[in-house]
Design a protein around this nucleic acid. Structure first.
Lengths: 142, 142
DNA sequence: CCTCCAAACAAGAATATTCCTATTTAATAT
DNA sequence: ATATTAAATAGGAATATTCTTGTTTGGAGG
């Protein structure tokens, strides 16, 4: 998803475009690996020194709610990381060794959703994460 | 899983049985709906007034790691709730209306796991939660 | 262009959870 | 029973994230 597409989505849903919001979206696209809120703050502050961390969280959460960003919860109280949703809906394997989030090909959970919808539940979202060790961390493990 | 079975598991894995630990396990079984760490603390303190909240979290996390307890993450910064795993491995739908955690029948994620294991990943756990509204909260919603 | 109002903001307080350190204790070997 | 040691604990500090409050601002309508 490009910056322009995201901004269009935000407008469509009736939210406003502020300079901070725009800068946060751009910052999310800069780092190699999905950044933490703190990472985003530091990038944004190069341009807007008075942006608060709360604003970063508020905007990232908005982006997650409208489906433009995925929140990656690392275990053990590490900071969360946030990934702009480039292509399709997917989930992650989080390596407990190096902390890297590996994208899973495809979401296999639609079956669950369908059953619940039939039973009268209204589903608005889901979280799914796998914890383990990637092949190279398996090698170096004791 | 009964208290005795859990204690046996703890011993088997080389952890110690302390009076606080025992009391925490018992406290988890008391409330109707899965309790928060604070709920557990209050029950335990009836008997042991000097138990710390950290001890409750530490023990619940241990129980979760050895697979005796499931951690239920409610959205929006509500406190987590913890459920003694009575029967088989399963997940939850969390109602955003009333906050209730509905148990899902069965874990459909084994396919994912198998694929990853074939690729050399070592899987140690996963988190899966669905957010939505239960039928009665759907009725009362605007 | 000017007014208006909901949405967004900054700053700092609050919250849930974990970490740190010094002390105590369960289980094991003597 | 006693000594030993790693695990567990209490208490308080630290951390990530969200909430609160008063202020500012985007964008719709006149």
């Amino acid at each position: 998803m490009t910056e322009a597409e995201i901004i269009r989505q935000i407008k469509t849903k009736g939210f406003k475009i502020t300079s901070q919001r725009r800068a946060i979206i751009e910052a999310l696209l800069v780092p190699d690996r999905p950044p933490t809120a703190q990472d985003v703050l530091e990038i944004v502050r190069d341009k807007y020194p008075y942006v608060s961390l709360d604003t970063v969280y508020r905007n990232i959460n908005l982006l997650a709610e409208i489906g433009c960003v995925i929140k990656i919860n690392l275990k053990n109280n590490e900071k969360s990381r946030f990934e702009i949703l480039k292509h399709h809906h997917h989930h992650h394997l989080i390596c407990l060794g190096c902390g890297e989030a590996v994208c899973l090909e495809k979401c296999l959970l639609d079956k669950h959703m369908d059953v619940l919808k039939d039973q009268g539940y209204k589903i608005v979202g889901h979280a799914f994460e796998i914890y383990g060790y990637c092949p190279s961390c398996c090698d170096t493990a004791e």
